[in-house]
Structure formats: structure tokens, C-alpha cells
């Protein structure tokens, strides 16, 4: 009985000393498109395209375009966060959300261009401005 208790304590102690699991590869868990439920109720993202714009130095810039169709008059706010190949954010001009208004039945197309060629992925977040 004593040896079982000792072994259990030893295992727990080792578990406490173990290094933290690596968090370097969580890219698969990040959604490219994140739409809040309030927005889904009144609008639909009907298209989401991405392309890379070639640059003279051989690099290219990531650009996305998305379409939003409104089921009723709607206000929304959107923001694109850019990430490099390692999953680190690439800072853009500002951090704020861009506001947009849509009329019932209207489809609007929005574009965003990455601030640097090292941006390889993105997350588009659509939310309802309060």
C-alpha cells in the first residue's frame, strides 16, 4: 500500500515538473472566417477569395475579398488579422474594426490587403457593432 502511494506521489511530482506542451502548431485550430451569431442571423458571407499579388522583388502580397449579403438592413464591423508562416501576427495600419452598412438584399464586396509579403494566412472576423 505504501509503495503504491509513493509511486503515485512520484508520478504526480514528475508530471508537475514536466515541461509545458508545445503550443507552436495551433494553426489548424484557427478559423479563417469567424462570424458572430448576431451577424449570421441577418447576413451571410457568400464568398471568400484569396490571392497573392506578385511583387517586382519576387515576393507577393496576400489579398482577400469577401462578399456579404444582407437579409435585412444591417450594420456590421469587420477586421482582418494577418499571420506569418509561424503563426505570429503581422501588424497592419490600425487595430480597429471597419464599419459597414448593408441594405436589405444588398451584396457588398470588401477587400483587404496584407501589410507585408510575409503574411501567409489571415483571420476575418465579422461582428455586430454595439
Amino acid at each position: 500500500m505504501k509503495s503504491v502511494l509513493f509511486a503515485s506521489l512520484l508520478v504526480l511530482g514528475l508530471a508537475g515538473c514536466a515541461s509545458q506542451p508545445e503550443v507552436s502548431n495551433l494553426l489548424a485550430d484557427r478559423q479563417e472566417l469567424k462570424v458572430d451569431p448576431e451577424v449570421i442571423y441577418i447576413t451571410a458571407v457568400t464568398e471568400l477569395f484569396e490571392e497573392r499579388i506578385p511583387q517586382p522583388d519576387g515576393e507577393s502580397l496576400l489579398q482577400i475579398q469577401f462578399a456579404v449579403e444582407a437579409r435585412s438592413d444591417a450594420e456590421l464591423a469587420w477586421k482582418v488579422t494577418w499571420f506569418d508562416a509561424k503563426g505570429m501576427t503581422v501588424p497592419g495600419v490600425g487595430e480597429g474594426y471597419r464599419k459597414a452598412s448593408l441594405l436589405t438584399g444588398q451584396t457588398r464586396y470588401f477587400k483587404a490587403t496584407a501589410p507585408h509579403s510575409r503574411a501567409t494566412s489571415y483571420q476575418l472576423h465579422l461582428r455586430e457593432p454595439k
Partner: peptide
């Protein structure tokens, strides 16, 4: 911020600053 974002993204996408 909106004006600067619009301007910079358009400059980069147009290739004007290449």
C-alpha cells in the same frame, strides 16, 4: 485610421510603391 488603412492597402495593392 480608416483613411490611412484605405490609402496604404490601396498603395500596396496597386503596386505604386514597388
Amino acid at each position: 485610421e480608416k483613411a490611412a488603412t484605405d490609402a496604404v492597402e490601396d498603395m500596396l495593392a496597386s503596386g505604386a510603391v514597388n
